[in-house]
Write a protein that binds this DNA or RNA. Structure first.
Length: 469
RNA sequence: GGCGCCGUAGCCAAGUGGUAAGGCCCGGGACUGCAAAUCCUGUAUUCGUCGGUUCGAUUCCGACCGGCGCCUCCA
């Protein structure tokens, strides 16, 4: 089997990747901050991580994936304060929505979804370690900061040494409390609104709450160990979030935190980064309301490499819809066929080899998709040819299953209500009679009637088939 | 200002130092009563522009033009 290769942000190169224990990939993926619906840009990253875990499984590895749910942070507290709610009241509905959305996009369950608020003791323990070993210091107000100049490797992920900080760019409002403007908060002393919204806990430094980066370090190490295989997230998290995670984790343990770092590029909308602040966000709910299958969005995302920016344009989803329809048609033909040809099995074999090679080479999904479509064209040709080779058909089905087990692009079966189905069947009967007496004008009128309701017809040797769309 | 990415057919998008995957759309043909689905077939002598290296560059180097991102909360 070909070697698995991944781009590692730490080295800025594509390099061989394998779990350190040889069998289970331990990966941590930064999850959503649950104070708003996650948008399609966020889901591009989650889809990239879904592709990643499924590809690891295809390679034969087990996967232990942890995705955190950030349920305490400035924005959540601000929203809670504005609504006179607790942070839990703010985060619960959005946590539920997140899971609904990810299921709609067929994103597989991670093994663990830890919440920040349920790991306060672990976070405090981590801060205590850092204070004890001198890399963190307590400010007068009870906040605790990490001193970046006491961690020699600070900046290795984002290659800070190659940058110049823009003059006047960083003026944090609580800078007065820090020894160095770039030190970051591990623990923030509680303010009035923190207490009011339930976002304050007892600590050795008084009432307070965790800094943003802390939860990921504490929870990753709790569930995956002090050193684990892979840490993934959006490219914007490289700095400062991931840089700070490395600092606080490695300063505490003296060990490598994540062995490999992977970052997915942004989704743009009409040329600009999709972001709440820009106001150009679209959500999974929008997709649902437009009747766009999750498979369509998956196709759109996987049609571009994860390390390239991707623009969601006017007809992007329409193109993907057509592509996915073709995949669905092939899946149906494969399921309904009764036999194949030797050439069908050959095509399947080539497709599987090409698909694996593409995905194991830094998750090249576009190339994997090309292998799938080549298989579909060749497979359709053989299916047209007929053939009674049952083993060949079984092989083709198996390979299709392998590929779709990773991409998951077959549109959902129509969940037509019984009433509509009965109506279609009745009309189809009338059309059949009309065709039998060669009254094609009447038959076509009935077809137009059915098509007008969004049903597609297909006359085959075994009668007329129909489906929504 | 610093760091980085990108610019491939009408659209989306892979890719390689030796001559351009795949999808969508479109044209022609087969099949069909007509369609649909499917198949066959045709669409980039060319990969932003200008130079350089090379026997040979879209692929390497440089400059330029254009787009995007990060440096601050951020997938």
């Amino acid at each position: 089997m070909s070697e698995f290769r991944l781009y590692n942000t730490l080295t800025r190169r594509v390099e061989p990747f394998a779990p350190v224990d040889g069998s289970t990939v331990r990966m941590y993926a930064c999850g959503p901050t649950v104070y708003n619906p996650a948008h399609l840009g966020n889901f591009r990253t989650f889809l990239f991580e879904d592709l990643m875990r499924r590809t690891f499984a295809l390679y034969g590895w087990d996967v232990l994936q942890v995705m955190n749910l950030t349920d305490v942070d400035d924005k959540i507290i601000r929203k809670a304060a504005a609504n006179g709610q607790t942070i839990t009241q703010v985060t619960e509905p959005f946590t539920e929505l997140f899971h609904q959305d990810r299921r709609y996009l067929r994103i597989q369950d991670a093994e663990v979804y830890p919440k920040a608020t349920e790991h306060i003791p672990e976070m405090i323990a981590l801060v205590e370690t850092l204070v004890a070993n001198g890399t963190a210091y307590v400010a007068d107000d009870g906040s605790v900061y990490f001193a970046i100049d006491r961690f020699a490797d600070y900046g290795k992920l984002s290659q800070l040494d190659k940058r110049e900080v823009r003059a006047g760019a960083r003026v944090a409002q609580d800078e007065y409390a820090k020894e160095n403007a770039q030190d970051f908060a591990l623990w923030k002393s509680a303010k009035g609104e923190d207490e009011a919204s339930g976002a304050a806990w007892d600590s050795p430094w008084g009432r307070g709450r965790p800094g943003w980066h802390l939860e990921c370090s504490a929870m990753a190490m709790k569930y995956l160990g002090e050193t684990f295989d892979l840490h993934a997230g959006g490219i914007d998290l490289i700095f400062p979030h991931h840089e700070d995670e490395i600092a606080q984790s490695e300063a505490a343990t003296g060990k490598t935190f994540a062995r490999c770092w992977c970052h997915g590029e942004f989704l743009l909308t009409d040329g600009a980064k999709m972001a709440k602040r820009v106001g150009n966000v679209a959500t999974v709910v929008d997709l649902r309301e437009q009747g766009i299958d999750g498979a369509v969005y998956r196709h759109f995302i996987f049609n571009a490499h994860y390390r390239k920016q991707l623009n969601l344009g006017e007809d992007s989803l329409e193109q993907s819809q057509a592509a996915v329809r073709r995949i669905g048609t092939f899946a149906r033909r494969l399921a309904e066929a009764t036999g194949g040809t030797a050439a069908l099995a050959d095509a399947a074999k080539r497709a599987e080899d090409a698909f694996r090679a593409a995905l194991f080479d830094d998750l090249n999904a576009p190339e994997g998709l090309a292998a799938l479509f080549t298989f579909i064209t060749e497979g359709n040709r053989e299916l047209d040819a007929g053939g009674g080779d049952v083993a060949a058909l079984a092989e083709a089905r198996r390979v299709f299953g392998v590929i779709d087990g990773v991409l998951d692009l077959v549109p959902a079966a129509d969940n037509t209500d019984g009433e509509l189905a009965a109506w279609v069947e009745e009309r189809l009967g009338a059309r059949r009679d009309a065709r039998a007496r060669r009254d094609f004008a009447a038959a076509d009128a009935i077809r137009a009637e059915i098509v007008a309701r969004g049903i597609a017809l297909e006359d085959t040797a075994n009668g007329t088939k129909w489906r929504v769309g």
